[in-house]
Design a protein around this nucleic acid. Sequence first.
DNA 1: TATTGTTATACTCTATAACTATA
DNA 2: TATAGTTATAGAGTATAACAATA
Lengths: 159, 159
Amino acid sequence: MTDSVDRILQQWSKARPDLDCSAMGVVGRVGRVSMLWGKQMDAVFEPQGLSRVEFDILATLRRSQVPLTPTELYQTLMLSSGAMSTRIEVLVQRGLIERMASEEDRRSCKVALTEQGVAVLDQALESHLANMDQMLSCLDGDDKTQLAGLLKKILLSSE
Amino acid sequence: MTDSVDRILQQWSKARPDLDCSAMGVVGRVGRVSMLWGKQMDAVFEPQGLSRVEFDILATLRRSQVPLTPTELYQTLMLSSGAMSTRIEVLVQRGLIERMASEEDRRSCKVALTEQGVAVLDQALESHLANMDQMLSCLDGDDKTQLAGLLKKILLSSE
DNA sequence: TATTGTTATACTCTATAACTATA
DNA sequence: TATAGTTATAGAGTATAACAATA
């Protein structure tokens, strides 16, 4: 069987037979899978009115189980402080999170999910998990284990 | 060894032990690898003054070996026609591509690389290939073959 | 009427840096 | 002086829809 990346590799082998483009077989496919899955995830979060970044913020708060500072959030999610402030303000306006003054440091604050924020996140998370299972339904258990292991090898060497 | 996704999974297992988040072990890692590699690729193309989309346009023209219409380009690269027109105009202004009137259909045109466009693309491609090899240097030959195969399985089921 | 490509518009998201208030 | 968080600004990039020319 031939996928879109195979077709690209075939074109390169004709246009530039002198080059070894085999790395594209991995890198190109990671990029393409990520793009397709990304669009699919956007569609999953959209009914809840959430962008992917907004989901990530809520999910980070949910799984940490304790309020986090804006600094912890933007470092975890690799956003600028300004971008995080904007996102936080939007989510506060929607009633999904709330800022709580810090007791130790009066410059700082803690961000926590509201009751409604927990409900929205849990609903989005459920859809997200179901969608991910569906995205992986073409792989058997061994495939998933192998794939996760290979990607982890990459992350361990680059993080 | 523990990577960033393992830590996220550990947090979920404590915060929501009722959920099966195993799919995140694959989907989360694909997203994270793609983001890290994406930033690295942006840095590789930057010295040539190219964005990733611009590189993709030039590379698509190079490997097809024939001039392409704007429609073919935006469908291949999954952009809107308006976005493609803007990109094409920028690349024309930089002297990297040129529009040629179509002979059969006077509404249409063909886009082709200029001599300079070929040179810039070839240089960027060389850097890109070297960078991709480096990104994959943590994997042995079998790993790369397996990884490409698993990702291809996903693409074949979703494209 | 439908299609090709361009243009005009508006929108989303972001990073940067200036700013405030504390430390 | 340095740091936490916010705000103001500007920039990049896009999609959408209106448009002109042609099929």
